[in-house]
């Protein structure tokens, strides 16, 4: 297939450039195939096949991608070097993905264990707690803490409630601004 590229490399005339030209029929055919595959993948997704789901849709996507790469991008007719380049990019990307997946799954137990113990604290209160100036968050959290422990000397966290209850609406609306403020710091 590389004939097309090389055949006239020695031509006297420098004003020539030989490449493979894909016929219109093939182009249109590929496009139709791609559309059909798109429809198939949408339909296939409607059936719940469990773990197979991802595999099927990725397989179809890969078929589509190969059509695009080999025909639309002429890789089929291209030089071996360009094929190699593209191939290696996929290989390296795949290696990268495999390693990070392998790793994140190997420590998955730790993460899950942690999630059960701790994350609720972070996530549940998170919309307020992370915005630095959100006073009500602190107030609401302080209360359960104080209640659960039999605080001996003083019971402090209860007095400041009224202030908090007025705030909610303004608080919500200012969320974007508070984010901005955190950023600009």
């Amino acid at each position: 297939m590389s004939d097309h590229v090389e055949s006239d490399a020695h031509a006297e005339n420098t004003q020539s450039c030989h490449v493979h030209i894909v016929p219109v029929k093939v182009l249109v055919g590929v496009f139709l195939a791609l559309v059909v595959l798109t429809v198939i993948t949408v339909e296939a997704a409607k059936y719940d096949t469990g773990a197979l789901d991802v595999i099927v849709s990725m397989a179809i996507a890969t078929v589509k991608a190969s059509l695009v790469v080999f025909i639309f991008m002429h890789l089929w007719y291209d030089k071996p070097l360009n094929k190699l380049a593209f191939f290696f990019s996929i290989v390296f990307a795949a290696f990268f993905l495999c390693m990070i997946l392998l790793d994140s799954h190997a420590y998955d137990n730790y993460v899950k264990g942690f999630t059960e113990d701790k994350t609720p604290e972070f996530l549940v209160k998170e919309p307020e707690a992370a915005a630095p100036a959100a006073a009500p968050a602190a107030a609401t959290d302080a209360k359960p803490a104080a209640d659960t422990k039999a605080a001996p000397a003083e019971k402090p966290a209860d007095e400041k409630k009224p202030a908090a209850s007025e705030k909610p609406e303004t608080d919500k609306k200012t969320t974007p601004e508070t984010i901005d403020k955190t950023d600009s710091k």
Binding site: K125, T140, A164, P168, E169, K172
Partner: peptide, 14 residues
């Protein structure tokens, strides 16, 4: 959601 912050830490009445 807009009022989640309010509803969260308050007494039932509030």
């Amino acid at each position: 959601a807009a009022h989640a912050t309010a509803a969260d830490g308050e007494t039932a009445a509030a």
